[in-house]
Design a protein around this nucleic acid. Structure first.
Length: 493
RNA sequence: GGCCCGUUCGUCUAUCGGCUAGGACGCAUGGUUCUCAUCCAUGUAAGAGGGGUUCGACUCCCCUACGGGCUACCA
């Protein structure tokens, strides 16, 4: 029986969830879940300098919002915990001692000043900046004496002098590195805390991770990781290096280009379903090899929820070229998912964006208003602008806007008077879109009048806009009194 | 500079050597329609360049170009 797949998402808590991080998390989730495996969440906080207050809680909260659920991890617990690296110090020390004892790592007493100077000289000489291995051949006694004398030191990994290190990436295949190019990098910092390179290997092994899912930017340290597994005598897991996500100009997606945090997208009114769907499509596609279109019964084969993606997902369908983060398709998907929402849910989501304070619009009224704009919404934050005309007392617009095509303003106003006449006959209790429409359209048809010459002015009088929902539905929502008042105001303009 | 990864429509992508290069978004046009949006239909647009291998190469190999990543006691 094959062992179950187990992946992990291991972010460092920097204060927000990067969109690239979301994708890594999603793919780690999918790789495991598509094969009935497990995903865990591990917090990599070995760099105390970057520690940000409350970052872990924020991270977990936003991850939860996206719908990616972990089987174990920080704040969740689990049998391989703790899942926060700062709480695993003893473990790291123990494994470091093992490496030291077997001669695979060594203490280095070089000062950061010396290191820096050395690097500068190497660069000036057009050499690759690399630690010169000064302390590598220190005898055990010499090193021990220095330690006892209280000298500050780090622990470095001893790299083989010159061998070909062959590593296997699940997406790219074999990648070769010459170990001579590899630095004796730091495993344990002078404060005793491990570096990422050391902590990942120990943790992934101890937590029985079967597939390491991470960004392509880690490929350069891939051989170092493999060598560490070898040094410990451990079997290395499989590695999946995801292609990078770039910004529109092809550069690295960073804070400076804006809009990179998931929190940001949430604040703008993007739905988690849309974000997940979109991000999944960045580097993965649902089209199968046999028939290009995975499911012909579906209209748009790319609209998929998390469960459907999980079902269709296959590691082999992950592409290896970096993708540009272009939000056009995201907007399309978001609009789609907004249209699928049931109205009560949509109202709940829109309320914070509407910012109506304590004005006296009834819940029922607000719900109808939002209902009218549902199919026009691409982002939740557009709701305020889109529905504003339902909430203001006086519409502001140029009276010439009342004119439809080639008619003139006086005619438009005359037509509005006719509309008022018709509307006044409709009793309050019959004030529905259907009866308003029936009455007006029937009248116009029997008189063989041009529909646009009446409906356009009516709509503008009610909304003050060139683009809006239809006049009948708007009239219904506004109510008889307000509708008539707005049309009268239009005539008096 | 060195090492490494990548390169199909504007964007995300499909193609396990046979292609009239498929889909999605976008865009354009048409239909529905008072407007916008929705919905439907149609259209638009691609294999970085050069060498090989092969009956045949978008697919395999090499070189070049371009893009990107890494090069910390950051992750």
């Amino acid at each position: 029986m094959k062992t179950k797949i187990k992946t992990r998402f291991a972010p460092s808590p920097t204060g927000f969830l990067h969109i690239g991080g979301l994708r890594t998390a999603l793919f780690a989730y999918l790789i495991a879940k598509s094969k009935d495996g497990e995903v865990i969440l591990r917090i990599e906080d070995t760099d105390q300098k970057r520690e940000i207050e409350g970052a872990v809680d924020k991270l977990i909260e936003i991850l939860d919002w996206t719908g990616i659920k972990f089987d174990a991890g920080a704040r969740l617990g689990g049998e391989d915990g703790p899942y926060t690296q700062s709480k695993r110090q003893k473990i790291y020390s123990k494994y470091c001692d093992r490496l030291l004892a077997s001669g695979q790592a060594y203490p280095c007493f070089c000062s950061s000043e010396r290191l820096q100077k050395m690097r500068e000289e190497q660069q000036a000489n057009k050499q690759a900046p690399r630690y010169d291995r000064k302390c590598r051949d220190l005898s055990f006694e010499e090193a021990d004496a220095k330690i006892k004398a209280g000298e500050s030191y780090v622990i470095r990994q001893k790299m083989p002098r010159s061998v070909m290190v062959k590593v296997m990436d699940e997406l790219r295949g074999e990648i070769k590195f010459n170990s001579a190019e590899l630095e004796d990098h730091v495993l344990i910092k002078s404060n005793g805390v491990p570096t990422y390179q050391f902590a990942v290997v120990v943790d992934d092994h101890l937590m029985k991770i079967t597939h390491i899912v991470r960004g392509e930017e880690w490929i350069p340290s891939f051989p170092k990781n493999i060598l560490l597994y070898k040094a410990f005598g451990w079997e290395a897991p499989k590695f999946v290096h995801l292609p990078l996500v770039m910004n529109k100009s092809g550069g690295k997606l960073s804070k400076r280009t804006g809009d990179v945090s998931v929190e940001n997208f949430k604040a703008k009114g993007y739905l988690p379903q849309a974000l997940i769907n979109f991000v999944a499509l960045l580097g993965w596609s649902p089209y199968s090899k046999q028939d290009n279109v995975s499911d012909k019964s579906k209209k748009n084969p790319e609209i998929l929820n998390l469960a459907e993606i999980t079902e269709q997902f296959d590691l082999k369908n992950i592409s290896i070229s970096s993708a540009i983060f272009d939000t056009e398709k995201l907007d399309f998907l978001n609009g789609y998912y907004i249209r699928q929402l049931n109205l009560n849910k949509l109202v709940d989501l829109c309320l914070p964006f509407l910012n109506l304070k304590d004005e006296k619009f009834s819940q029922k009224y607000i719900k109808k208003v939002i209902g009218l704009e549902q199919e026009r919404l691409k982002r939740l934050d557009e709701i305020k602008e889109l529905t504003e005309f339902f909430f203001v007392k006086n519409l502001e617009y140029d009276e010439n806007m009342l004119v439809w095509k080639k008619m003139d303003l006086s005619q438009a106003k005359l037509n509005l008077k006719k509309i008022i006449e018709l509307l006044e006959k409709i009793p309050e209790e019959n004030w529905t879109k259907k009866s308003i429409e029936d009455d007006i359209v029937t009248y116009l048809r029997t008189k063989e009048l041009k529909i646009g010459e009446y409906l356009w002015p009516m709509r503008v009088a009610l909304t003050g806009r060139k683009a809006s929902p239809g006049p009948f539905e708007v009239a219904e929502v506004l109510g008889k009194k307000e509708s008539l008042s707005r049309i009268e105001k239009a005539i008096k303009k």
